[in-house]
Design a protein around this nucleic acid. Structure first.
Lengths: 157, 157
DNA sequence: TCGAATCGCTAGCTTCTCTAGCAATGTCTG
DNA sequence: CAGACATTGCTAGAGAAGCTAGCGATTCGA
C-alpha cells in the first residue's frame, strides 16, 4: 500500500496496520460485489447501478440516467443500454421527470428491492451484528475514521 | 444498507452511522479504482489484476493465472487474454513455475510497479497522513473493526 | 429571443468475457 | 507401477457490453 515508506515509531506501525486492514476491506468489498454479480446473475456495472439506486432511494434523492453515467464513469450511450437491460429484466422503470421534459427518473421496482435484500440480507445482518459488538465511543471513532478515509480516497467527493 | 431495521437506542444509532460510513467508503473505493482505470488507461479487471499482484508481491506470495481467475471470478480463458494484454503492455511477465511444469508464475515488471505508485502515490500518502491524525489506541480500535468487517463481508475468507 | 448547452437515444464499431475443448502435466488408486 | 482422473493454461468462435459520433427535443442564458 506504500512505496518505500517504512514505519519507525510505534505510532507509525499502528498506521501501517490500519492501512493493511483497509486493503483487506477493499478486497472483501470487491469480492462481495462480484459475489453479488454472480448471485443476481448480472454484470458488474448493472449491479453497481442497482446499488446506487438503493442508496439514493434511502436518501430520498431521485436518480437520472446521467447520474448513473457520472457515478459509474461510463458514457450516456452505455447507460442507455444498461437501463434497457435493467428495464427488460424488470429491475427498474423509466419515469418522466416532473419538471424537465428532456430528462427521466429511474426508479427501482418492488421485485428488484426484494431480490437485492434477499441476496444481501445475510451480509448486512452479519455486518450489523459485528458492529453491535463495539460500544458507542468506539463506533464514533470508527465512523469518523471511515468518513476521513472516504475523503482521502476520493478528493472530488 | 438495512431492510426494515430501524435503530431504537442511542447505541443502535451509532451502529447505523457506522454502516452508512461503510457505504460511503465502499463508494469511494469504487470511484478510486475506476479512476485508476482511467489514469492508467486500462479496463477494470486488468487494474484489479494488477492490484492483486501488487498486494501478493508485498506478502511475498507468488501468483498463478489460476489465482487471478479465482480472485477476479472470471474464466481461465479470460485470464489468458487478460495476461496477454498485460504482457503486451509490458506490465507483467509469465515465468515457468519452479516445481509444476503445467503452471506459470505471473510477475510484475519494474515499469508496472513504478506506474502504479506514480498514479496512486497521492492517494496513498493522503490516506497515510489522514491515519497519522489518530492516536495508537484509536488506530487499534479501527484496525480491529476493519478486520472484523472484512470477515463479515466475505464469509469464505 | 435566439444561440448554446443539456438530456437521452440510435447506429456502428471495438473490446472483453464466456463456453467448449485441447495437449501437457501432475496426482491418486488398485 | 500402470492406468484413470484432475488440473493447468491455452485456442477458437460466439455473444455481451462499452465507446464515439451524431440526432431531435427541450431548457438555459446573454
Amino acid at each position: 500500500m506504500s512505496e518505500r515508506w517504512q514505519p519507525q515509531t510505534e505510532h507509525e506501525h499502528a498506521v501501517m496496520r490500519v492501512l493493511t486492514s483497509i486493503r483487506a476491506v477493499s478486497d472483501a468489498m470487491e469480492r462481495m460485489h462480484s459475489g453479488m454479480r454472480g448471485d443476481m446473475d448480472m454484470n458488474a456495472t448493472d449491479v453497481a447501478a442497482l446499488r446506487l439506486l438503493i442508496i439514493r432511494e434511502r436518501n430520498g434523492r431521485p436518480v437520472s440516467p446521467r447520474d448513473i453515467a457520472r457515478h459509474l464513469r461510463i458514457s450516456t450511450a452505455s447507460t442507455t443500454k444498461l437501463l434497457d437491460r435493467l428495464v427488460v429484466s424488470g429491475h427498474v422503470e423509466r419515469r418522466p421527470h416532473p419538471s424537465d421534459r428532456r430528462a427521466r427518473v429511474v426508479v427501482l421496482t418492488d421485485p428488484a428491492r426484494e431480490t437485492f435484500f434477499r441476496v444481501f440480507g445475510d451480509r448486512l445482518r452479519a455486518m450489523r451484528s459485528m458492529a453491535m459488538g463495539y460500544d458507542e465511543a468506539e463506533l464514533a471513532v470508527v465512523a469518523r475514521f471511515l468518513d476521513d478515509l472516504s475523503h482521502a480516497m476520493d478528493p472530488d467527493d
